[in-house]
Design a binder for these strands. Structure first.
Lengths: 238, 238
DNA sequence: GCGACTTTGTTCCTGAGTTCACAAGCGGCT
DNA sequence: AGCCGCTTGTGAACTCAGGAACAAAGTCGC
């Protein structure tokens, strides 16, 4: 295991436990986690890599490699003890501490996010809601009153918000983002179709419906053959 | 350009134009497209790779390589003609033909998706809405009445739906998915936190809020140092 | 108690994607 | 008209992720 990276964390010894986890693996681990918890509800206690891989839609070798990052506890010849595995994955993903979430922009999407059932259950309590619309402010959504966006920095700092979800129209997104950052938020989930400019120490994940659709569109047209395209600039040009 | 792939499309000549486009590049092209169209609205007509890369948040070399897949039309020493570039990217992504979208599950999220402003503008007209709730059926949402989920196969086939968006609770997602596939839908956008099982010729893209949050959580805890974790099973074990 | 079978954890390898770096090309300036 | 500087497009190195195969290890049956 040759670790020759620019190490910001080189002072610690157990670095291995939370660095050196491939980007993509983190996302898959979250998926495994959900499959596993739903298995617990069904009363299953043990699962082999083959089964879990099938349920998660990945290769079993990939799965085993991913699990090796969590210092996994499987039993050869048997499989994985689901309860123990869940515990380890949760620790690796940092789900043992709670991350309070602020939702900005209480439109259709904001409502959906604020009411999303899975969040509180899984360690993501929503502790603040913001909007600009005077008619919305003060009205409780999912049991929590909406605050004015101007108060984002103060409220986020006070309630120790760690994750901000931006559900505003694109025009407001960058402004809101700056306010969140000013309030100490370092993780942002951006639903607005904009590329946000943030300091280096802020992590942004973009969820972009239009982009997803366009990717599907690409596959669709690749499947059906090319577009009409009697355009000679393609055939001849360059 | 060595193209030595398993070629399902080897009969055609201009294959290069739409095969051999890396997965990741397609997603980025959609982002470039949005940046470019917003630039047009601002009256800009020309842009260098450096500028566009900055606005899209990617490396300029990556951007140029991505644009080379569309058989790009830049001018050395000047940059790219935005209008022409937009046209070419739209053709590659298959946006010159319209893809009608069906939304299943008219809850919070379904409303958000159905009303999403960007869809009709960008060639994704929403032509069908479905739900199970009798109270919703017949009621128009965004100008379109809601149909019963049982009619998914018939309606999708009739209206030539090419993309299905699943916004249902997880328990219903697989059932809905099967109905969509039965109706001839080959592209699915899945917002339900479930891994769908589909035939090989169906393309599924998953948008999973919980997974996104957990990835952010991982980065957050990596940043702040490890979790409390005085657990000796980690330090000592194996 | 021992052997055979099952499944994990890991190593190696292949292929893809990203970045660097440079040559070719185009416009503007003198 | 010729030169200079700027920008594109691409060839090549490098990094990273994914898949196959195998050895270690533990359990179950006898």
């Amino acid at each position: 295991m040759t670790v020759h990276e620019h190490s910001r964390y080189s002072t610690r010894v157990e670095d291995l436990s939370y660095r050196a986890v491939p980007e993509a693996a983190v996302g898959r681990l979250a998926v495994y986690l959900r499959v596993l918890t739903s298995m617990i509800e069904q009363g299953v206690t043990t699962m082999s890599s083959e089964e879990l891989a099938g349920a998660a839609g990945v290769n079993s070798a990939t799965l085993r490699k991913d699990l090796s990052y969590v210092g996994s506890y499987g039993t050869r010849g048997v499989g994985y003890d689901i309860a123990r595995l869940v515990e380890h994955i949760e620790r690796l993903l940092g789900l043992t501490r709670h991350h309070s979430v602020a939702v900005v922009g209480i439109g259709n999407l904001g409502h959906a996010v604020a009411n999303y059932a899975g969040f509180p259950d899984r360690g993501f309590p929503i502790t603040a809601l913001f909007d600009l619309d005077e008619d919305l402010i003060g009205i409780p959504v999912g049991g929590l009153p909406v605050d004015h966006a101007d108060s984002i920095p103060a409220v986020c700092a006070e309630r120790e918000v760690t994750i901000g979800a931006i559900c505003t129209p694109p025009a407001a997104a960058q402004w809101v983002c700056d306010l969140l950052v000013a309030g100490g938020v370092r993780c942002i989930l951006n639903f607005a179709p904009v590329v946000l400019q943030v300091p280096d120490d802020v992590e942004v994940r973009r969820v972009d419906l239009a982009v997803e659709l366009q990717i599907l569109s690409f596959y669709q047209s690749r499947r059906c053959g090319p577009v009409v395209a009697p355009v000679n600039s393609i055939a001849v040009g360059r």
